[in-house]
Amino acid sequence: MIGTQRTHRRIEHTHGTAILTTASTSGFDTQTGCSAVLLAPHTVGVCRSDLREIRGERFGRRDFGHEIVGTVLDTSSDLGHLREQTIIFDPHPRLSTRSSGFAELVELTGDATELQAALVPVPGGLDPEAAVFGEPLACAVHCVHRLLRASIDVEPDSPVAVVGAGMAGILISAALVGRGYRGALFNVGPERITFLNDRKALPTASAQIYNGHATFSRVILATAFASPRYLDACVRLLADRGVLVLFAGTEPGAHFGDVDIDELRRHELTHQLSTAGKDFTVVGTYGATRADFTDALALLTAAPNAAGWSPALCVQRLITHRLTLTDAASFLTASAANGVLGKAIVEIDTRSRS
């Protein structure tokens, strides 16, 4: 069946516009030496990187529609043990080809080991609406791990400041709280803070409007871009000899002082920096490992704490849009231009597959 062409609907993008198209799977040529997987998505999350790709502002990876929860429909013979598994897609292993994830069918080809690494089994009983947060939460968990490894000389109970209350900042904060750390999530504008507090997505008083008065020995920048404005805000929050972790997006050639922060972030480097009368460590974080996925899924299946909060409850409260594939193209185009508050997910009707 992997070599059979199948017609399906999928969303592509061009010139700032997402378009719902009809496509055919290419089939699998056994002479290429590649392994293959045919994936049937159930639920796909909309990531800010998807919107950046539509706008033509994504640097490095291209992985449109990568927050996928789905079923392995078919595979080449060497990966037959994966068939019918429900999985979360991990976009970080290097594959030869991958079609758009906003689709009824997704084709993956590459080395068998890399393909297997890209398919993370979903624990039984985990709701797809929670599981779709598995990949972004794994990246948040990875960020927290990077912070903890870099701050072994910092008081372990000291709180962590997260700057930027977009989805990344929220999930980093949830990962911190879920692991028992105290945190404060800051945002310059009030809209996202009001949204979080109204939905009770994070524990009380976790989310605050930035005022620049408090200081923290550990700060994470999780805005869409690591702009000079936000970097300066982080330095104001940071105590002398503290640790600043860069999760925020960067572009080639971006600098903070004499540090190439794009290289630092993408290659997960560490650099000592002095500015504004402070000495501190800057740490890059990028992507996630299989161990981070394991930890993220453990958080999503954890029981509520004494106050009744859990990461699973948090992510459910973040969902603001549930879209069909038909609705999603116009939504993606509008959101790429105007942004979106909360999390949008695309639910794909399995009855419509050819």
Rank of each mutant, 00 (worst) to 15 (best):
Ala117Met: 06
Thr275Ile: 14
Asp127His: 08
Asn187Phe: 06
Leu244Gln: 03
Asp74Ala: 00
Asp78Ala: 04
Ser49Met: 09
Leu171Asp: 01
Leu325Met: 12
Gly134Arg: 09
Asn305Asp: 15
Ala150Asp: 04
Asp29Glu: 08
Leu221Tyr: 04
Gln85Trp: 05
Ala118Ser: 11
His15Val: 14
Leu269Trp: 04
Leu238Asn: 03
Leu185Met: 12
Leu244Trp: 02
Phe225Thr: 10
Ala207Thr: 06
Thr71Glu: 04
Asp327Ser: 15
Ala291Val: 09
Gly180Lys: 13
Ile2Thr: 05
Ala239Ile: 00
Leu300Arg: 03
Gly212Pro: 00
Asp63Gln: 14
Arg61Ala: 15
His213Pro: 00
Thr326Trp: 05
Ala131Ser: 12
Ile68Ser: 04
Ser151Met: 15
Asp295Gln: 11
Lys278Thr: 12
His42Trp: 01
Glu155His: 13
Ala344Glu: 03
Pro128Asn: 15
Thr22Trp: 10
Ala239Asn: 02
Thr32Tyr: 06
Gly3Glu: 06
Ala205Ile: 07
Ala165Leu: 07
Leu119Thr: 01
Glu114Met: 12
Val141Tyr: 09
His145Ile: 02
Thr285Trp: 03
Gly80Lys: 06
Ala312Trp: 04
Gly178Tyr: 06
Arg351Lys: 10
Gln85Leu: 06
Ile170Ala: 13
Thr215Pro: 00
Gly342Glu: 02
Ala205Glu: 11
Arg229Ser: 10
Val37Gly: 02
Pro304Gln: 11
His8Pro: 00
Asp292Gln: 09
Leu108Cys: 06
Thr324Pro: 09
His13Trp: 07
Leu237Pro: 00
Leu237Tyr: 03
Ala184Thr: 15
Thr350His: 06
Gly33Val: 12
Ser354Asn: 14
Arg182Gly: 13
Ala112Tyr: 01
Gly27Trp: 03
Thr109Arg: 07
His145Lys: 05
Glu129Thr: 06
Leu297Thr: 05
Gln31His: 10
Thr285Leu: 05
Asp90His: 12
His267Asp: 01
Arg58Thr: 13
Thr14Lys: 13
Ala36Phe: 05
Ile152Glu: 14
Gly164Leu: 01
Ile348Pro: 03
Val162Tyr: 06
Ser99Gln: 04
Leu323Ile: 15
Arg182Cys: 04
Pro311Lys: 05
Leu323His: 14
Thr75Ala: 02
Val141Asp: 07
Asp74Ile: 00
Ala307Trp: 09
Glu129His: 08
Thr223Val: 08
Gln5Phe: 07
Glu129Arg: 08
Asn305Cys: 10
Ile152Met: 10
Asp327Gly: 14
Ser49Ala: 15
Leu108Thr: 03
Thr4Lys: 07
Gly80Arg: 10
Val132Tyr: 13
Gly124Asn: 05
Gly284Lys: 00
Arg58Glu: 13
Gln116Tyr: 00
Ile220Asp: 01
Thr324Phe: 11
Val243Lys: 01
Arg229Met: 08
Ala175Asn: 04
Arg9His: 10
Gly180Ala: 13
Ser96Glu: 11
Arg229Ala: 12
Glu135Met: 06
Gly3Cys: 01
Thr17Pro: 12
Ile19Trp: 13
Gly189Pro: 02
Ile152Gln: 14
Gly65Thr: 01
Ala214Tyr: 02
Pro228Ile: 09
Pro91Asn: 13
Asp292Glu: 14
Leu196Gly: 06
His255Ile: 02
Leu299Ile: 07
Gln85Phe: 01
